[in-house]
């Protein structure tokens, strides 16, 4: 798959079909991949595909000028479609190099299972439904659904539907919805006041680095409302109240664009369970309006469209 990717990417640049290639190259730490954004055809030799290509590369599309060949997993492709729906990018300017994705390995889960930090592990390898972690020369085996990201366990589209070049055989989605939704289900069992207090506590850790927003392909506003000063909707100080309002509104603003790629939660340096917000919003949008973002490039954006009869029970 990697070889094919390198050839195709190189050819795209050589034949001047794209100006840029966006993909992954090996990262500088164990078990990491890092985005490679290049116009140099020699760089394509470094392109990789592995279970650690975690970033949603669609995030870079709105900031780049020219035609782009982009490596896309299923979730990334949905973000790309969503950007097309919103007229942020033009389909013709993107060459989608589709990666059939069997799910990404969540290093936080691996650390928990292995009882060691990621840099203390010798190896992590996947073979079908088993993941083998080698620590101090000893091998430990785990079931795949213990090690994948929560959002991967809820994946509805492992292989992009919309693509230009398919890099491998598409596999079936293997949703483990129950495991994936555990956190949300647990929260829903709590009383409203307890839930609010939960978020209050979580957001008291927030340092307002805005990594969640900046890593989110759906957050493409030129100017975010948190940066408005007239009026000042939220204070730029990391008080839990302001942090929480920022995140509530961010989620509402990306409703119908969020594809549950899980990046917000992954990038958070202080482990705020942001996917438990994003996924719930994803669910609400689906439940109320049967809308799934990034599935159909012809569909109108959620907030630019309506049906005559919907959600009436919420109105007096």
């Amino acid at each position: 798959m990697e070889q094919k990717l390198r050839q195709e990417a190189k050819a795209l640049l050589e034949q001047n079909k794209v100006d840029w290639i966006i993909g992954f190259e090996p990262g500088s730490l164990k078990f990491t991949a890092t985005p490679l954004i290049t116009r140099d055809k020699n760089d394509t030799e470094r392109l990789i595909i592995n279970p650690f290509i975690v970033n949603n590369l669609a995030d870079f599309l709105t900031g780049i000028k020219g035609r782009v060949g982009i490596v896309a997993k299923g979730c990334d492709s949905r973000s790309i479609i969503s950007l097309i729906q919103d007229n942020k990018i033009v389909r013709e300017d993107v060459v989608i190099l589709a990666v059939p994705c069997p799910g990404l390995i969540d290093l936080v889960k691996i650390e928990r299972l292995a009882g060691k930090d990621r840099d203390e592990l010798d190896d992590i390898s996947r073979d079908g439904d088993k993941v083998t972690v080698t620590v101090d020369g000893q091998k430990k085996e785990f079931a795949i659904n213990q090690t994948l990201f929560d959002h991967c366990l809820a994946c509805e589209l492992p292989t992009p539907q919309e693509y230009d070049i398919l890099l491998g055989e598409p596999g079936p989605p293997a949703p483990e919805l129950e495991v994936s939704g555990q956190n949300i289900a647990k929260l829903k069992e709590a009383l409203p006041a307890e839930r609010w207090e939960f978020w209050q506590n979580e957001f008291s850790r927030c340092i307002r680095c805005y990594a969640c927003r900046n890593a989110c392909p759906a957050c493409f506003c030129q100017r975010c409302f948190v940066e408005e000063t007239e009026p000042q909707w939220v204070m730029p100080v990391p008080r839990w109240q302001d942090n929480l309002i920022f995140q509530i509104i961010r989620n509402i603003h990306v409703a119908g664009r969020c594809t549950d790629c899980g990046e917000c939660e992954r990038v958070c340096p202080v482990n705020i369970p942001l996917r438990s917000l994003a996924r719930e919003m994803y669910g609400i949008v689906d439940e109320l309006f049967s809308f799934k973002s990034g599935m159909d490039k012809e569909a109108l954006p959620l907030m630019a469209h309506y049906e005559q009869e919907e959600a009436e029970d919420l109105f007096k």
């Binding site: 929260l187 829903k188 709590a190 009383l191 409203p192 006041a193 307890e194 839930r195 609010w196 207090e197 939960f198 978020w199 509530i248 989620n251 509402i252 409703a255 917000l277 719930e280 919003m281 609400i284 949008v285 109320l288 309006f289 959620l302 907030m303 630019a304 309506y306 005559q308 919907e310 959600a311 919420l314 109105f315």
Partner: peptide, 18 residues
């Protein structure tokens, strides 16, 4: 109609938050 969509998700989402 647009307000309806926005208010509906806001209402549901706030409820979820507590």
């Amino acid at each position: 109609y647009r307000a309806r969509r926005r208010i509906a998700i806001t209402k549901k989402f706030l409820e979820y938050l507590g």
